[in-house]
């Protein structure tokens, strides 16, 4: 898979194969793939949360390779520092990891795809093959990429902030309203039940 992807791009200018970028890319991609696989296979929900954590760190690393440093750090701050901890809290508060997490009875209507653990693996492989076939068939990757210019990495927080404060101002203010809604909604829902 990896080999196919690399060979496909054409006009990328000659850059040393082994640069920090590729190392970072490989490491974070590897971390992500492994954690995704683990997620699919694990039954214990706490493990699932940790693997989610690892996957998100992997994605942060990918962001880094895409020269999106602010985004990587935000991802770490928000997801790793916030959402995962919240998930852990939720797991603890909803009876820990003894809950049954995989479907037992066969799915009435659709194909047995969503059965037991083994079927998961088969399903995963089948879909991978399907993707490659579709990609090559529809020439998904190449058509758009006409030219790829090796852009030097530049810190993005200043320009992102400028963009945020001028062009996307309305979204910036709207997000705070969204957060307010989420806060009040969740607080309302999570308020202890009065017996």
């Amino acid at each position: 898979m990896l080999v196919v992807a690399i060979e496909k791009e054409r006009t990328f200018e000659k850059v040393a194969i082994v640069s920090f970028l590729t190392i970072l890319f490989i490491l974070s991609a590897l971390l992500m793939l492994v954690s995704c696989l683990a997620l699919l296979l694990t039954k214990n929900i706490m493990h699932a949360c940790t693997f989610l954590l690892a996957a998100l760190l992997g994605v942060a690393g990918l962001y880094l390779t895409l020269h999106a440093d602010t985004l990587a750090v935000t991802q770490v701050l928000v997801y790793v520092g916030g959402v995962v901890i919240l998930m852990l809290f939720a797991v603890v508060l909803t009876g820990g990891q003894d809950q049954e997490s995989i479907t037992k009875e066969k799915f009435p209507h659709l194909a047995p795809l969503f059965g037991s653990k083994s079927t998961f693996l088969k399903a995963f492989l089948v879909s991978m093959i399907f993707f490659v076939a579709a990609a090559s068939l529809l020439r998904l990757g190449e058509k758009e990429i006409v030219h790829v210019v090796a852009v030097n990495y530049a810190p993005t927080i200043q320009s992102l902030g400028q963009l945020l404060m001028t062009d996307y101002l309305f979204a910036f203010e709207l997000v705070s309203v969204l957060l307010l809604g989420a806060l009040i909604g969740a607080a309302l829902i999570a308020r202890p039940m009065k017996k």
Binding site: T70, T74, I157, Q158, G161, Q162, L164, M165, F172
Partner: peptide, 8 residues
């Protein structure tokens, strides 16, 4: 969200 805004 405030970090980029503050830095600018």
């Amino acid at each position: 969200l405030m970090f980029p805004a503050a830095s600018v």
